[in-house]
Design a protein around this nucleic acid. Sequence first.
DNA 1: ATACTTGCAAATCGTTTGCAATACC
DNA 2: GGTATTGCAAACGATTTGCAAGTAT
Lengths: 146, 146
Amino acid sequence: MNKDRPYSALVQRLKAAGLRPTRQRLALAKLLFEPQSGGDRHITAEQLHAEAVAEAVRVSLATVYNSLHQFTGAGLLREVVVEPGRSYFDTNVSDHHHFYFEDGGRLQDIPGEQVHLEGLPNPPEGTRVARIDVIVRLSDGESEAS
Amino acid sequence: MNKDRPYSALVQRLKAAGLRPTRQRLALAKLLFEPQSGGDRHITAEQLHAEAVAEAVRVSLATVYNSLHQFTGAGLLREVVVEPGRSYFDTNVSDHHHFYFEDGGRLQDIPGEQVHLEGLPNPPEGTRVARIDVIVRLSDGESEAS
DNA sequence: ATACTTGCAAATCGTTTGCAATACC
DNA sequence: GGTATTGCAAACGATTTGCAAGTAT
């Protein structure tokens, strides 16, 4: 139907990633990378699917999973594992860390530059550091005054 | 039958945790806390079940799951999430971090004392830090000479 | 035209649960 | 004896897959 919206930037992004800009990938990319709410997103496949459906985008859950993995493989997303049995996808692919609100299961970015890790042993022979994840798990309750 | 093996230490440990020292819990505790290989363990439910079966211990997988969670609730184990859809249980419950070998899915402890984290923002209002997980993900390949 | 994508429904994986039989104190 | 625990098999939720139908280049 109407494919005249200014999807050009997203089209380029997908093409650059080696992915055909199909209707569903474009719609998902729009939800992910150009959210009305601005900023970065931490979302599960089910959540993204629900959003798509809510916006009358016809996409199957299977395609949402496929797309999320393709985007991740292309470096457009970063998968974050904090809970057994549930994967989050983060639109922020830069070096950074996370707060994880255990009650509610929400994630919040911690900019990578401001955090410094010291004293880590060198990676064992024959391996290299692919990535370092720091997850600060938060629970309800006041932090005690020291 | 023969319940005369020196399980006393384990029996005490279970009792102290408020858990009845049943045959299956004792056998699992022995595999977890007194491994022939010494040292701490990072194991999945399936792996532990396989070990038990291999040692002719009759335990159902469901009981292994139950026991692992009970042990975790009692502070005898620590659950580590590094991969979607798979939980590891760590017999080291002290403050420490992990190397994760992406190929092979093995975990290795990094003592907590030697690692220092600086620059973390304060936890948001009304929350407290329950725990901080640092996961150093390793992949095959030489670390580049700088 | 042709290879890549999609959707559906079935399959899979790890994990949990219901409930009768069983083991501990 | 009475309650906690176990085992089995069915139920589960998240994710994946097979394959025919649809779509991008």
